Simulated scan of single mutants.
Amino acid sequence: MSFRSYAIALSLICALVLQIMPLPAFVDLYRPDWVLLVLCYWTLALPHRVNVGVAFINGLILDVLLGSSLGVHSFAMCVSIYVLAANYKRLRNYSLWQQAFVIGVISAFYNLIVFWLQHLLTDVYFLFTYMWPVVSSMILWPWLFWLLRKLRRQLRIS
């Protein structure tokens, strides 16, 4: 087996590592949703290989890694990726900056679902700082898109 057959899985593992990597507290507020961003790219590029099922598994892994209630990130990830997968043909034709805006909306949707579920399960209150990852995810999208597209084209992943 070649590296090509594991490239998607390895990119998701890298995203999971980046999601849990320790950062200083003032930087951690702006941590992008790495797993969501990588899943969004692969869902747009290869919707027949990366879909809601892959999002569910990665959401469960993220729940375990972050120590949150089992299913919170998984449910939010599934709903977000479903919305993206249902509209992938239209979103592929958008410019990179329009895609960044859409990714920001999906990231906000994801973070609000996570907050809502955590609020139902615990007694967490909303703070505006919960939305900083949305801004950093929007800013990071063009560069992540370029990097993963280059990887996909060089390895001829289809």
Rank of each mutant, 00 (worst) to 15 (best):
Met1Ala: 12
Met1Arg: 13
Met1Gly: 13
Phe3Gly: 15
Arg4Tyr: 10
Ile8His: 08
Ile8Ala: 02
Ile8Leu: 11
Leu10Arg: 04
Ile13Gly: 03
Ile13Tyr: 07
Cys14Asn: 03
Cys14Pro: 03
Ala15Arg: 02
Met21Val: 15
Pro22Trp: 05
Leu23Thr: 08
Ala25Tyr: 11
Phe26Ala: 14
Val27Gly: 05
Val27Ser: 09
Asp28Met: 10
Asp28Val: 08
Leu29Val: 15
Pro32Arg: 08
Asp33His: 11
Asp33Met: 02
Asp33Ala: 13
Trp34Arg: 08
Val38Glu: 01
Val38Phe: 06
Cys40Arg: 00
Cys40Thr: 10
Tyr41Ile: 01
Thr43Tyr: 05
Thr43Ile: 06
Ala45Cys: 06
His48Lys: 12
Arg49Cys: 05
Val50Ala: 04
Asn51Phe: 15
Gly53Trp: 11
Val54Ser: 13
Ala55Ser: 14
Ala55Asp: 02
Phe56Pro: 00
Ile57Pro: 02
Asn58Gln: 08
Leu60Lys: 01
Ile61Arg: 00
Asp63Tyr: 08
Val64Asn: 08
Leu65Tyr: 07
Leu66Glu: 04
Leu66Trp: 01
Ser68Tyr: 02
Ser69Gly: 09
Ser69Lys: 07
Ser69Gln: 13
Leu70Pro: 00
Gly71Met: 04
Ser74Asn: 06
Ala76Pro: 05
Met77Cys: 09
Cys78His: 00
Val79Cys: 04
Val79Met: 07
Val79His: 03
Tyr82Leu: 12
Leu84Glu: 02
Ala85Leu: 13
Ala85Thr: 12
Ala85Ser: 15
Ala85Glu: 14
Ala86Arg: 15
Ala86Asp: 14
Ala86Cys: 12
Arg90Ala: 12
Asn93Ala: 13
Trp97Gln: 12
Gln98Glu: 09
Gln99Asn: 07
Ala100Asp: 01
Ala100Val: 04
Phe101Val: 15
Gly104Gln: 02
Gly104Tyr: 03
Ile106Glu: 03
Ile106Asp: 00
Ser107Thr: 15
Ala108Gly: 14
Phe109Lys: 05
Asn111Leu: 09
Asn111His: 10
Ile113Ser: 00
Val114His: 03
Phe115Asp: 03
Trp116Arg: 07
Trp116Lys: 10
His119Gln: 14
His119Thr: 10
Leu121Ser: 03
Asp123Ser: 14
Val124Leu: 04
Tyr125Pro: 01
Phe126Trp: 05
Phe126Arg: 06
Phe128Met: 11
Phe128Tyr: 12
Thr129Pro: 03
Tyr130Cys: 01
Met131Trp: 06
Trp132Phe: 15
Pro133His: 02
Pro133Asp: 01
Val134Lys: 04
Ser136Asp: 05
Ser137Met: 00
Met138Cys: 09
Ile139Ser: 06
Trp143Leu: 14
Leu144Gly: 06
Phe145Leu: 14
Leu147Cys: 10
Leu147Ser: 09
Lys150Thr: 14
Leu151Tyr: 00
Arg153Val: 10
Arg153Lys: 08
Arg153Pro: 01
Gln154Ile: 09
Arg156Asn: 14
Arg156His: 13
Ser158Cys: 03
